[in-house]
Simulated scan of single mutants.
Amino acid sequence: MRWAVWLVCVATLVACASGPVRRVSEPSARIQQLTVLADGSWTADLRIENFSSIPMRFDSLQLAMKIGDQDAGTLSAHPALTIGPESADVISVTVSPTVAAKLAVADGLASRQGVQYSLDGMVTATPDEQRQREFKIKRSSALSPAPGLSGVLR
């Protein structure tokens, strides 16, 4: 009986000594806000989400953006931003959209119906104390006009 109790105590101590699990999960990116600027370009506020149990430094991103079925342009940035475990942060990226995408957004704003969008590309990130990795991003969602804010979709 003493051996059983002793064995349980040792097993418990060994389990505690291993520390927290260091899990690297696929990150996510989505448009939190899209603002139409006076010169016709857009500012996309991208929410980057780190689902890992360790911090990750987001070095670069290249995301092809579509509005509805129209190619809108590429969101490209080198944020060099560290995001803590299971956290998120927002970066702003300026894009010069295609004419077809500008018309789709203008129509969505005028009709107060909003627009569908999709992102497809790669995010390069470095998990804490590990080597740099590329993660595939594929996201589809919708943006709606922000009440009281002209030219803003959320």
Rank of each mutant, 00 (worst) to 15 (best):
143 L>H: 12
82 T>A: 00
106 A>N: 05
80 A>F: 03
35 T>K: 04
58 F>E: 01
2 R>G: 06
147 P>W: 12
108 G>Q: 05
59 D>E: 12
74 T>S: 07
48 I>N: 05
139 R>Y: 15
13 L>V: 13
74 T>C: 05
57 R>T: 13
98 T>K: 02
26 E>T: 09
103 L>F: 07
87 S>P: 01
141 S>F: 15
33 Q>P: 13
134 E>L: 09
38 A>W: 04
132 Q>E: 08
45 D>G: 08
49 E>N: 02
24 V>R: 02
138 K>S: 13
139 R>I: 15
77 A>W: 00
40 G>K: 04
108 G>V: 06
51 F>S: 13
70 Q>L: 13
74 T>W: 12
105 V>G: 03
121 G>D: 04
51 F>T: 13
47 R>K: 07
76 S>Y: 12
63 L>R: 01
124 T>E: 04
55 P>D: 14
85 P>C: 01
129 E>V: 09
38 A>Q: 11
13 L>Q: 11
94 T>R: 10
11 A>F: 10
88 A>K: 04
70 Q>K: 15
2 R>Q: 07
110 A>P: 02
139 R>S: 15
37 L>M: 13
121 G>K: 04
57 R>M: 02
102 K>P: 13
55 P>T: 08
80 A>Q: 12
12 T>K: 11
53 S>M: 04
111 S>G: 06
87 S>Q: 05
36 V>H: 03
80 A>P: 03
84 G>E: 02
127 P>E: 05
93 V>A: 01
110 A>C: 05
1 M>H: 06
131 R>D: 13
116 Q>Y: 11
53 S>I: 03
55 P>F: 10
26 E>K: 11
12 T>G: 07
78 H>M: 12
153 L>F: 01
39 D>M: 07
94 T>Y: 06
54 I>W: 02
57 R>D: 02
95 V>T: 15
51 F>V: 08
73 G>E: 13
119 L>N: 11
32 Q>E: 11
152 V>L: 14
25 S>N: 07
83 I>V: 10
151 G>I: 13
93 V>S: 01
78 H>K: 04
38 A>V: 08
19 G>S: 06
15 A>P: 09
111 S>T: 11
2 R>S: 05
131 R>C: 05
105 V>Q: 03
21 V>E: 09
51 F>I: 03
17 A>G: 09
102 K>F: 14
124 T>P: 03
74 T>R: 11
148 G>V: 09
102 K>C: 14
22 R>Y: 08
